[in-house]
Design a protein around this nucleic acid. Structure first.
Lengths: 192, 192
DNA sequence: GTCTATAAGATGATAGAC
DNA sequence: GTCTATCATCTTATAGAC
């Protein structure tokens, strides 16, 4: 874990926001430079090529997201509560300027991404499904949750529902649309 | 319904495929020209600005999608069968070169789209939800389908699940991931 | 309806001064 | 670590010949 300068972090902050709202092909070094009131070459100094910036973006995002999931896991919430916290991770992203989940956005841009970035996006989704599967499995073992079929299948469904709900909600510029879907999906997992 | 020349249709075909795989900001007039082995100004002749091409693309897409939904409605399939046919509409898009639903893609690109295109994307989703709501309402009235809550809420959930399943499946380059989600979602609607 | 020629601006990137 | 200057290339778009 190497220490990064203040500017590099600011660049990542701005670039992430831009990716989440405009997509990987929808932002440029000029956009980042303007937002930070520095010049383009300063950005190249920290991230020589756009692919480098993309890789750093994903590395930080996955690390942070992983930490957020670990924090939820460590909390003393029960299974249903953990799933609700998971949902609010997505919700809070959407509420911030109608942003999309960064990996959902990159999944849309998938065919135009450099190979390492593609792998990272896939792994992110895999990590999410792994985590969800674990919560679902334990929740059902505890009789705190009830659902049919393998926990993995339900994990895949929940991730798909949340990503899709974000995507559609974006076009209505209406965060409550996400809430409606999330509540319904998680509501069906309640043990009887 | 005005007749369009052969070239204009070919341009729309290529542009649609490009939008569905690379996004609105991920393709250029040069890409379309190269695919059709014509020159860029020929494309400008049919669609002066990219926004014009975008509008024509959405108009045709919505018209075709609407016709497909009408055909399913007119079929003598029962409610569950209609929903399965609806799912296979999405599935067949994904299977073709790992393409995304055009409107799902444009929802990702939403913040960078010209205003008329944004409205069109929103309306497309609205039309889908309207259609699904109708099938769900009738299906439940017939006791062919069973689910809790208002038909509209379930319609919103199904659309979100399908869009999200496509998006995630894309990054795994695995169409069967979509099938798994679609089967599970529709399976839960079966009347007991 | 298609072409050649052309243009203004954006984009990703580098060299080299400070 | 940031800047000025510069670059080749791409992108959207227009003028005007055929």
């Amino acid at each position: 874990m190497q220490k990064r300068g203040h500017t590099a972090d600011q660049i990542l902050d701005v670039a992430q926001a831009l990716v989440q709202s405009h997509g990987y092909n929808g932002f440029s070094y000029a956009d980042v430079a303007q937002a930070l009131r520095i010049r383009k070459p300063s950005i190249h100094h920290h991230f020589p090529a756009k692919a480098d910036l993309g890789r750093a973006l994903m590395a930080r995002y996955r690390q942070r997201f992983g930490a957020a999931l670990a924090e939820i896991s460590a909390s003393n919430a029960r299974a249903a509560g953990k799933l609700q916290k998971y949902a609010s991770l997505f919700r809070s992203v959407l509420q911030q300027d109608n942003r999309m989940c960064m990996c959902g956005m990159l999944a849309a841009d998938f065919s135009t991404l450099p190979r390492p970035l593609r792998d990272s996006v896939r792994d992110f989704f895999g990590d999410n499904e792994d985590w969800l599967e674990g919560v679902l499995r334990l929740g059902r073992a505890d009789r705190a949750l009830a659902f049919d079929g393998p926990p993995r299948a339900m994990a895949v469904r929940i991730l798909a529902a949340f990503e899709g709900a974000m995507l559609v909600a974006r076009s209505f510029e209406d965060t409550s649309r996400f809430d409606t879907v999330a509540r319904a999906v998680l509501g069906e997992l309640k043990a009887t």
